[in-house]
Design a protein around this nucleic acid. Sequence first.
DNA 1: CAAATATGACTGACTAGTCAGTCATTGTCA
DNA 2: TGACAATGACTGACTAGTCAGTCATATTTG
Lengths: 242, 242
Amino acid sequence: MTKRTDKPTRPSPQRPRQAAIRAASAKTPKVVSAKLAEARPVANRAERSAERRAAIVEAAMDEFVARGFAATRLDDIAKRAGVAKGTLYLHFKDKESMFEELIRTALVPLISRLAAPPTITGPVRDAVEGFAEIFIREVATTRRGDIIRLIVSEGPRFPAIADFYFREVVSKGLAAMHRLVQLAITRGEIRQKELAHFPQLIVAPAIVAVIWQSLFARHAPLDGIAMFKVHLDLIFGERRTT
Amino acid sequence: MTKRTDKPTRPSPQRPRQAAIRAASAKTPKVVSAKLAEARPVANRAERSAERRAAIVEAAMDEFVARGFAATRLDDIAKRAGVAKGTLYLHFKDKESMFEELIRTALVPLISRLAAPPTITGPVRDAVEGFAEIFIREVATTRRGDIIRLIVSEGPRFPAIADFYFREVVSKGLAAMHRLVQLAITRGEIRQKELAHFPQLIVAPAIVAVIWQSLFARHAPLDGIAMFKVHLDLIFGERRTT
DNA sequence: CAAATATGACTGACTAGTCAGTCATTGTCA
DNA sequence: TGACAATGACTGACTAGTCAGTCATATTTG
């Protein structure tokens, strides 16, 4: 029950060590708080607020990725972001909203990348290979990969997130893949016509690479890009030139 | 900590409604308690204890799969299993041990399946296809698939589980795949020799199918077996006969 | 200085784990 | 074999502790 029947009067809160506290918190290798302390030319309200929010988002991302939704403590997020817990509530309604908003925000760059010019100049294979190289280097290796794992983990418990992810990322990405495959088939680059029905097959190795990184990289490193090239050889036939 | 320095007298607990409580608990539609009530020929202590344990394992599996480790309440597991919370601690040391032991137990059948006769009679493709069909039907669709998702979700937070899973399932499975691929290459069934370096490519679609089921089946059903057959066509070349 | 922001102590709901007490089953003995 | 004693599986009320969310107070800004 946590009695806490004491503390009857609280003789005067007296925030004495404010500076000290800040100093201590600045001393820690916290990402953004340091940045705030150094480069603060003037920073009006809006800017500072945006910076704070960014710091919170960054910290929350780290914590959620490391521990999952349920096991993450808002106290830890606040500490890592260099703010008080109450401040979190100035930016987010509650823990759940924070989590959902975070995932969505984190996916925005991915989405814009997907919507980027799908103009094909050379062989389709090169397009797919470039796409995969970017994906594996920028997703499987970075924290965006963790986001994918987070979605796999928490998706079933956050249908809103799974829905959003399917709508904004998966279906768009698969549609793009579908188009590429169709093009490659008409061009004769791909012989297996059935592949058009399962664009998931194109990206499957990339997904596996992401999962492998977070679970087994320690036991057996996996060169995702090399693996994907072999995969492309299967799809497009073995490459002639080196 | 758990002080417990107090409790000097405990005025006399007086458990009055023992019978009533039992009746109530029996009335609930609990899985195993019902079974016990009906088919109880004699059921000595050991048998009953084993049944209890099985009920707990079953219930715990359901709860952990549905909510993840952190969000699962032991009270709920106990209620679902039709036992008191204290009983859980007669079978498991604590929540974490319970979780880990559960995962291991759940994988035993999978492991024995992997260690099963790898004798190849016909084409390697048929062996792989049979293997995949079993896997997708018995794993992607059933609760074993949830276990895989659970490992992906909680693995990073339970290194012991990730280690165990890698050692007992992943590395063995990949080694088996590697052997199959080698055989197929020497037989001329597979032309792409590099495939031997990445046996993960063989199983990637199966993994993706598992994940798809739990996240997106609602939005867009996926025929995992059909997908895998197309995948095999890519690896072995398109199948001649229907 | 008033308004806008930020703080962190505090609350209360919730939960892992404990343990004194109960009682069905098993063992013992006449 | 029937009565009685011993056992230990089982129970659930209870404790200590945790943590999301609040709000009175303090600080900063314009």
